[in-house]
């Protein structure tokens, strides 16, 4: 990987090297902190942070029991943010997510009761279990970063990030998200089983001095305030992207549409997502500009939920990651 380099020479963007270095330091400290609680999934942690700094939302896939809640709580704690969890069920109503207006007999007035969505980090567990209407309500919140109740628009507290989980095992009685909706998520993160060594560390960490399996995030220190996250997000969005790098991202996205094994390729949002996530990646590496490597590194999480495989490949058990991998092998890296 690239070594962090100090930017030198004339800086054309608005961020000073100093600020950038600070932001990168914050990001990396957050990573370390979360890794204390969420052992053995460094890649997952990094991708979540990428999404956070790129002001995007993530879709998490993984069998139950891999500590998704723990991860989100640890993340919330690092920036002292608020955290809410909604278990999606078939009878969950949109208002259960967003909140609703309530008539207060005492004051003879309508009062707005805010739903769980008013938080910094929202863990939407098993999003595919709720009916489409409820899903749509959530997705609207994600898109607009605000909630409309009784015609009244109410902004969500920044930073706002949704982490929706999907259970890959049982598909019965679920409402899979349509492709267009999946597009709203910046990244799709797959949590696999940890390695044996990590699992051991995790078990000792969890069992030592703990009763039951209550999630232990006491080891995680709060580093910053929620407002700082917004600043970092701003820095990230202003990182330099060379024309040829963005061309590269576009080329990848376009290639997914003509690739033989892919039934439906990524939309325009795919290319955008690549660049957004790559910017965050550059920040983590302490760089103030994006390289083609950043794009390539984030290509799998940014694209894997935006494509659907041709049925015959799906039957044969191919995974989007395999296809994307071979696709990346064929896309030329930037020229000149």
């Amino acid at each position: 990987m690239n070594e962090p380099t100090q930017p030198s020479g004339v800086d054309k963007s608005s961020i000073t090297p100093d600020k950038l270095a600070q932001a990168a330091a914050i990001a990396n400290r957050m990573k370390t902190e979360i890794n204390k609680a969420f052992i053995g999934q460094e890649q997952v942690v990094e991708q979540i942070l990428l999404a956070l700094f790129a002001a995007g939302h993530v879709l998490i896939e993984g069998v139950p029991g891999l500590g998704k809640t723990l991860l989100v709580r640890a993340l919330a704690k690092t920036f002292d943010g608020s955290f809410a969890r909604i278990q999606f069920t078939p009878d969950l109503m949109p208002s259960d997510v967003t909140g609703h207006a309530m008539y207060d007999l005492k004051s003879d007035q309508f009062r707005i009761r805010k739903g769980p969505v008013f938080t910094n980090l929202l863990l939407a567990d098993e999003i595919n279990r709720a009916p489409a209407k409820t899903q749509a309500a959530l997705l609207e919140c994600m898109q607009e970063a605000q909630v409309t109740i009784e015609g009244q628009a109410m902004p969500l507290p920044p930073p706002f990030m949704t982490l929706a989980t999907q259970n890959p095992i049982e598909q019965e009685g679920t409402y899979p998200l349509p492709e267009a909706q999946l597009d709203r998520f910046l990244l799709k993160i797959v949590i696999g089983y940890p390695t044996e060594q990590d699992e051991k560390t995790m078990i000792t960490a969890v069992t030592s001095g703990q009763i039951g399996d209550t999630l232990n995030v006491s080891a995680v220190n709060a580093i910053i305030k929620p407002a700082t996250i917004s600043t970092v997000q701003q820095i990230v969005s202003s990182l330099l992207v060379d024309g040829r790098v963005s061309e590269y991202a576009v080329r990848i996205a376009r290639k997914t549409r003509e690739w033989p094994g892919i039934a439906m390729g990524a939309g325009p949002r795919g290319g955008l997502a690549l660049i957004r996530a790559a910017r965050a990646k550059a920040l983590l590496a302490g760089r103030d500009f994006v390289t083609p490597d950043d794009i390539k590194d984030v290509a799998l999480p940014a694209l894997r939920h935006r494509i659907s495989l041709a049925p015959e490949l799906e039957i044969e058990g191919h995974k989007p990651d395999d296809i994307l991998g071979s696709l990346l092998e064929k896309v030329e890296a930037p020229r000149k």
Binding site: P7, G9, L240, D242, D288, F289
Partner: peptide, 19 residues
Amino acid sequence: FTRLTTAWQHIAYAKRTPE
């Protein structure tokens, strides 16, 4: 080679000339 790559990346993608 690492140094060279870094320098090349800076000049190619950030138009920044090394010392």
